[in-house]
């Protein structure tokens, strides 16, 4: 169990993480989302003991990071952003070094190294220096060092960044397999990844939590949840045809594609079947008809942009207050 309570991290006057509180239980795969500079990496750096918190506390399986950092660090496997590794070492030398530090000896050490080499498929590059590896292999070396000691807690900062689609698929499968009886926290920009591997997602913006739930729950909060996308083959008065339907709150025309419309239902209403009946019954000139995808992305945009807007508004408010005082 990871307990984060009122965590704040400031750099000079800039507040990267602002009074963050949440807990993660065993078996959870937590996706940590947010725009660049939202405080994702900073939070991870505090949990892993790289940065000291300005205020608040982080407890990992009962050990406080401030008072017992070595115990916490032994429990965690961490892939820092960009997967830094020592460039002059070969893959095996590097993994041997990490295994040494993690306290492995002799036969046990050999087995652990062999296991991770197989798990992340490093066999063919074992004896190459890390410097000469491709970006994808470097990332996998970083993953290998993070899981070599079968950590109770796995923290991965953008684990699939720079991987090709096959490698991404492989890494996601690996994370899913590792997730049993463990705590996994991953940060990512790729929202489909969250739906694919995470059991829970937290969206942060400007250092604060703006959403917390299962990926499905967050998707359901999008205003496009249950919306229908429709592609017409010829001019047709869609607005007129839908005017009297009370479940439909809006019909939006796409700016990117001609004759592409999105029919937005009232919150909580299902309109797909009803629309399908109309399309077939009234023989609308339809080329394509499906439920809208990318709900998480829409929800992400709505909460993160909203957060920065309200932060702006607050700041303006404060400014005007101080002006009044003057």
């Amino acid at each position: 169990m990871i307990e984060i309570s009122h965590l704040t991290k400031k750099f000079d006057s800039f507040t990267a993480v602002d009074d963050l509180s949440f807990t993660v239980a065993e078996g959870e795969v937590l996706g940590f989302l947010g725009p660049n500079g939202a405080g994702k990496s900073t939070t991870m750096k505090v949990i892993t003991g790289f940065l000291a918190p300005t205020a608040g506390s982080v407890t990992v399986c009962g050990h406080d990071i401030s008072t017992d950092p070595i115990a916490v660090k032994s429990l965690i496997g961490y892939l820092p952003e960009g997967a830094p590794c020592y460039p002059d070492m070969t893959v095996l030398e590097f993994l041997d070094f990490i295994a040494d530090i993690r306290g492995f000896h002799g036969e046990e050490k050999k087995q652990s190294i062999a296991r991770v080499v197989q798990q992340v498929e490093l066999g063919e590059v074992c004896h190459k220096t890390i410097d000469t590896l491709s970006k994808g292999f470097k990332r996998r070396v970083g993953l290998a060092q993070a899981i070599i000691h079968n950590p109770k807690v796995l923290i991965l900062d953008e684990p699939t960044d720079g991987l090709d689609p096959n490698q991404k698929h492989h890494v996601r499968q690996l994370i899913r397999n590792l997730a049993r009886d463990r705590i996994v926290i991953i940060s990512t920009h790729i929202l489909e990844e969250v739906s694919a591997v995470c059991t829970r997602a937290i969206i942060i913006a400007a250092g604060r939590i703006v959403a917390d739930g299962t990926p499905k729950e967050l998707e359901a909060r999008s205003r496009y949840n249950g919306a229908v996308s429709i592609q017409l083959t010829q001019e047709f008065d869609l607005y007129g045809a839908l005017e009297s339907v009370t479940e439909v709150v809006a019909v939006e025309e796409s700016d990117e594609e001609r004759r592409r419309y999105t029919i937005v239902p009232a919150a909580g209403k299902q309109i797909f079947n009803k629309m399908l009946e109309r399309v077939q019954g009234e023989q609308w000139p339809v080329a394509e008809f499906h439920l809208v995808e990318g709900l998480l992305e829409d929800y992400f945009r709505s909460v993160t942009q909203g957060a920065s807007l309200s932060a702006h508004a607050q700041r303006r408010e404060r400014q005007s207050n101080s002006e009044q005082q003057v």
Binding site: F50, I70, K73, Y78, P84, Y86, I98
Partner: peptide, 14 residues
């Protein structure tokens, strides 16, 4: 420069 300091300082070493 290479960022390995983050790796090193998050290993269980003093």
């Amino acid at each position: 420069k290479s960022g390995t300091i983050e790796l090193l300082m998050t290993l269980p070493v003093k």
